[in-house]
Simulated assay, not measured.
Amino acid sequence: MFNVIMLPVDGSEYGDKAAAVAIDLAKKYSARIAAVHVLEEFSFNSYDSEEDSGDEILAKITEKASEVGVEVTEHLLTADPLRDMKFIVEQTRADLVVIHAHGANNNRFVSFEENNVSDTQIGSVSERLLRTSNVPVLLIK
């Protein structure tokens, strides 16, 4: 049913929940995971520290997946996740995307209540991907 499951990860607890679901689905359907971590084009942190952090996040996913026999291809990219996620899905040749409703960046909510993240909120990257993706998107809350 699925051959490549794309998993955008940011190191947040929400991303960990999505990773667990993606790994379970990949095992069930003998699919591989395309784990994607996007380094923001414009960041106040040094590129080296962002790259090291991204490598650690991806390695964690690969380790969890390999424990149950799931193959992972790691993608560490510099891009704008809001603008480029649909293109990234196409480039990974994913036929399913498993993404968390919101992640580490609490400043990009479609419906933002003052300093509180509620169960009804969805991040802007997830929301745009739901609207524009040509493949199924499984949103994890």
Rank of each mutant, 00 (worst) to 15 (best):
residue 30 S to F: 07
residue 41 E to L: 11
residue 50 E to H: 13
residue 123 G to D: 01
residue 127 E to R: 08
residue 94 A to Q: 01
residue 61 I to K: 02
residue 73 T to R: 11
residue 68 V to Y: 07
residue 70 V to C: 01
residue 100 H to F: 12
residue 57 I to N: 03
residue 21 V to F: 14
residue 141 K to M: 09
residue 87 F to V: 05
residue 52 D to T: 13
residue 107 N to V: 08
residue 79 A to F: 05
residue 22 A to D: 12
residue 104 A to S: 06
residue 29 Y to Q: 13
residue 65 A to N: 11
residue 122 I to N: 01
residue 138 L to C: 10
residue 95 D to Q: 00
residue 17 K to H: 12
residue 119 D to Q: 14
residue 34 A to V: 07
residue 14 Y to L: 04
residue 11 G to D: 13
residue 44 F to D: 15
residue 88 I to M: 14
residue 9 V to A: 05
residue 122 I to D: 02
residue 66 S to R: 13
residue 124 S to G: 08
residue 69 G to A: 10
residue 56 E to I: 02
residue 15 G to T: 10
residue 92 T to F: 06
residue 141 K to E: 11
residue 82 L to F: 02
residue 124 S to N: 12
residue 45 N to Y: 13
residue 65 A to C: 09
residue 98 V to H: 09
residue 103 G to K: 15
residue 98 V to Y: 09
residue 110 V to N: 02
residue 118 S to T: 15
residue 12 S to F: 12
residue 63 E to I: 05
residue 70 V to K: 00
residue 76 L to W: 04
residue 45 N to F: 13
residue 70 V to M: 00
residue 26 A to M: 07
residue 78 T to Y: 06
residue 120 T to D: 15
residue 23 I to F: 14
residue 132 T to H: 05
residue 65 A to Y: 08
residue 80 D to H: 03
residue 76 L to S: 10
residue 49 S to P: 02
residue 35 A to T: 08
residue 95 D to Y: 00
residue 47 Y to N: 05
residue 95 D to C: 00
residue 117 V to F: 07
residue 118 S to K: 11
residue 28 K to M: 12
residue 89 V to T: 01
residue 94 A to F: 03
residue 27 K to W: 05
residue 29 Y to P: 09
residue 32 R to G: 05
residue 32 R to L: 03
residue 120 T to I: 15
residue 114 E to W: 08
residue 16 D to C: 03
residue 42 F to H: 13
residue 98 V to D: 08
residue 59 A to Q: 15
residue 121 Q to A: 15
residue 35 A to W: 10
residue 125 V to P: 03
residue 65 A to H: 07
residue 11 G to H: 12
residue 74 E to C: 06
residue 49 S to D: 13
residue 42 F to W: 06
residue 3 N to H: 04
residue 77 L to C: 04
residue 72 V to N: 06
residue 130 L to D: 06
residue 40 E to Q: 14
residue 52 D to V: 12
residue 136 P to C: 06
residue 124 S to P: 05
residue 32 R to C: 03
residue 7 L to T: 08
residue 52 D to A: 13
residue 128 R to P: 01
residue 52 D to K: 15
residue 96 L to V: 00
residue 4 V to L: 00
residue 18 A to T: 05
residue 82 L to Q: 01
residue 96 L to Q: 00
residue 115 N to I: 02
residue 38 V to M: 04
residue 83 R to K: 12
residue 29 Y to W: 15
residue 134 N to L: 03
residue 30 S to V: 07
residue 116 N to G: 06
residue 115 N to D: 05
residue 78 T to N: 12
residue 54 G to W: 10
residue 12 S to V: 07
residue 79 A to I: 03
residue 52 D to R: 15
residue 87 F to C: 04
residue 25 L to R: 06
residue 24 D to W: 09
residue 16 D to M: 07
residue 133 S to Q: 06
residue 91 Q to L: 12
residue 126 S to P: 10
residue 121 Q to R: 13
residue 44 F to A: 14
residue 48 D to R: 02
residue 68 V to E: 08
residue 20 A to K: 15
residue 110 V to K: 06
residue 65 A to S: 12
residue 131 R to F: 01
residue 134 N to P: 00
